[in-house]
């Protein structure tokens, strides 16, 4: 089985978000970039397929040269090889179109992507990729087993879970549950050394057009100070929630 894991290179979850150039650009100054948390779950699940079922694992990113350390980290965790598609990921549809080229040309059976990226939170790339390649698609996936070309998966639904049956080739939008937090892998020294020698191929973009573009960014309006209510005066809290906030 040939697995492709889509890796989005995103600001660390604790990053302060600021903008420059008249709020038209995200300020990358001092921001630490990491593998998107959902993609990390997917990468670990891919490693299990590799170890238990003899799959090969390729990681891919659509981005500029600055994302290569993130791909190297994925190689250090255990992926076999990496592809960087050289394009600015300005729009989810564009990213999906570029990824679709790699998927079609690479003969992949299973594509694991995160259900959402922590930067633009598009929640669109996996679904679009599935449609463009005509692969089956499971989103919000919390469990997956593959036997031959048969797939059993579970996805999260509002208030529960749904068990699904499908077949390869398949695109998955994965999240926690596909593996657990404790299963996530941190690259060790040996992995980091080996990653340096693993192939990282840069492919030129096919030149897909963006269908959306961001004009400006805004920050949420600053919030007023919290109103503290004395623990012995909870009637006041109820009063405020009822009369002022009108939420109870």
């Amino acid at each position: 089985m040939k697995i492709l894991v889509c890796i989005s290179h995103v600001p660390d979850t604790t990053s302060k978000i600021n903008f420059t150039n008249n709020d038209a650009e995200f300020d990358k100054n001092g921001v630490q970039f990491v593998i998107n948390p959902y993609d990390e779950f997917c990468l670990t699940r891919a490693m299990w397929f590799k170890e238990k079922q003899g799959a090969s694992v390729t990681v891919v990113n659509v981005g500029g040269a600055e994302t290569e350390p993130t791909l190297r980290k994925a190689l250090a965790i255990g992926a076999d090889d990496a592809i960087r598609i050289n394009a600015e990921p300005t729009d989810g549809f564009l990213v999906a179109k570029e990824l679709a080229e790699v998927v079609k040309n690479g003969g992949f059976d299973l594509v694991l992507a995160g259900k959402e990226s922590a930067d633009y939170n598009g929640q669109m790339v996996p679904g679009m990729l599935a449609s463009l390649t005509d692969f089956n698609f499971v989103n919000g996936c919390v469990e997956i087993e593959v036997e031959g070309t048969n797939v059993n998966a579970k996805r999260e639904i509002d208030g529960g879970a749904e068990t699904l049956a499908t077949t390869l080739p398949l695109v998955v939008g994965g999240q926690k549950g596909i593996v657990e937090e404790k299963d996530l892998r941190i690259p060790n020294m040996r992995g980091i050394m080996m990653a340096r020698k693993k192939p990282l191929q840069v492919v030129e973009a096919s030149g897909a057009n963006a269908s959306t573009n961001i004009q400006t960014y805004e920050k949420p309006a600053p919030k007023g100070a919290v109103k503290l209510v004395d623990a012995d005066n909870l009637d006041e809290l109820i009063n405020l929630l009822h009369n002022e906030a009108k939420v109870i």
Partner: peptide
Amino acid sequence: TVKRKAFSNKAFSNTVIS
């Protein structure tokens, strides 16, 4: 042009769909 959440609710973007 629509306003969207971005960066996990830490900001909004004004996005043009072209």
